[in-house]
Amino acid sequence: MSTIFDNKVENAWCPGCGNFGIQNAMKRAFSELNLEPRNVVLVSGIGQAAKAPHYVNTNVFNGLHGRAVPVAFAIKTVNPALTVIAESGDGCMYGEGGNHLLHNIRRNPDITVMVHNNQVYGLTKGQSSPTSEEGFVTKTQPSGNISRPFNPLSFAISQDASFVARAFSGDIDGLVRLLKEAIRWKGFSLIDILQPCVSFNKVNTYAWYRKRIEYLDEAHDPENRLQAFERSLEWGERILLGIFYRKKRPVYQERVKENLGVEDLLYRGFESENILQGELPRFR
């Protein structure tokens, strides 16, 4: 399916990479939400996942390892009219940038954080990542990873993040649906996307995931934080997908307006774009 978000930038991912599913789902979700390329900003860090914004026809900030979230936060703060999405891998978001994730959950900016979670470092060719399972053998963990994997969902729910979901890059329809929900959500939305790495992760493969994934059923109440937390702990024979938790919380950008009264300073140039367009002909 072609969309206005397609471009012709040469792709550097391995054939079969889970990133392709995420990239396609992203373009579809943007189209179905009727977003315009000029109003979307994709902010990424460093890693294979962080290359994704180059392959999508939107505004792009591809910067430095671990720092996508603070950059996205500030873009949204300066111009709340933009749809701002921070996108990177598990190493970037949960390792190098872990501290930024924590504090932006607290602030609750109206941004979406997409994490391509393949449980390995792909760009540097195969080292363990914060989400690698115990015993996972890599080039720098030759006798197996001895640290516990980071659980992003439990972490985010424990901190009362506004929106927490998990998707699988091998189910594009499901991923499109969840992405649209996450982007539409007013507040900080975290979407952890399970993604096979066909070159450096021979354990968590498409087949491995397909055997385990299952969407949360009707009985799950995403407003119930304790239930969400309990569900988020499950990982193994069954891996759950869907919206684990959501809770409306005041959004940072709105609180700045309300509490600090700085609306005029920060927003005037951008929100009055329509007025400006109306005035311009007078000066032609």
Binding site: E96, Y121, L123, T124, K125, Q127, K139, T140, Q141
Partner: peptide, 14 residues
């Protein structure tokens, strides 16, 4: 921490 072009130092020492 891995970064190109020196990651082999880590790999060797691991």
């Amino acid at each position: 921490y891995p970064i190109t072009p020196q990651t082999e130092i880590s790999e060797y020492l691991s």
